[in-house]
Amino acid sequence: MARSATERGTDWLARGGLRPTRQRVALAALLVGDGENRHVTAESLFAMTDHCGEKVSLATVYNTLRAFCEAGLMQEVVVDGSKSYFDTRMDDHPHFYWEDSAELTDAPADQLEISRLPQLPVGAELSRVDVVIRLKRV
């Protein structure tokens, strides 16, 4: 029997140890309900809630996305200092950022090779390396 988007979203929240409030379940269902990974901005997710008839404020969307990140369910990908995308795919992988459409897509991780990183400052440990490859269509 196929699972519903709401069931998938509720299970996803449970994996992050988050209480399944009505708004969290609605947002989780939009993010992972079809079983696919996606990249969203707070604004694009807010627009999706409007299309499905869910009443959620933009501030709630921002706060919920941050909570999802803190729970380890999503990762934030900062493209510019003021532009963040939220990615439901949690493994380490690079991204393409299409400047003309402001779209973030996954880049093939098996084709990326980082041969060396600079020496880390004393007292620091590596958290992660984000790779965003900026593209323009020709």
Rank of each mutant, 00 (worst) to 15 (best):
D91W: 13
D50M: 07
G33F: 02
V32G: 06
A2Q: 11
W12K: 00
A67E: 01
D91N: 14
S57Y: 03
K55L: 07
V79R: 07
E113T: 15
V138P: 06
T105G: 06
C69W: 00
L126Q: 11
T21L: 01
D11Y: 06
R38P: 04
Y97P: 14
D100H: 01
F46L: 04
H95P: 03
A5E: 12
I114S: 01
G72C: 15
A109P: 03
L104Q: 05
F46A: 03
D130F: 08
V129R: 06
Q23P: 10
A59K: 08
F68H: 05
P118F: 12
V61G: 08
D11G: 08
R128T: 13
V77Q: 05
R24V: 00
S4K: 11
K136T: 11
H95L: 05
S82N: 14
D92L: 15
A124S: 14
V25T: 04
V132E: 03
R66G: 05
M48G: 01
A59Q: 10
G33E: 04
T21A: 03
E99A: 14
S4T: 15
L65P: 00
T105F: 04
L65Y: 01
F68T: 09
L135N: 06
D100F: 01
A14H: 10
A109I: 10
L120W: 06
M90K: 15
T105W: 02
D87F: 08
D110E: 12
E36T: 13
A29I: 07
D110T: 10
S84Q: 04
A59G: 07
L30Q: 02
E7Q: 13
H93T: 14
L104F: 05
A109Q: 09
K83G: 10
R89P: 05
E36D: 13
A71T: 08
W98R: 13
P108A: 11
S82D: 15
S57A: 09
A42D: 10
R66Y: 06
E36Y: 10
S101D: 13
E54C: 03
P20I: 01
V122R: 15
N63G: 14
G17Q: 00
A102T: 14
E7F: 09
T10R: 14
S57G: 11
T49L: 01
W98T: 13
A124F: 14
S101Q: 08
H93K: 15
T88V: 15
D34W: 06
A59C: 07
F46V: 00
T6G: 04
D50Q: 10
T21P: 01
E54T: 07
V56C: 04
A42N: 08
A2L: 07
S84L: 05
V77A: 07
V78H: 10
C69L: 04
A14K: 11
H39M: 04
L65G: 03
R38H: 10
L126S: 12
N63C: 13
G123Y: 05
A28V: 00
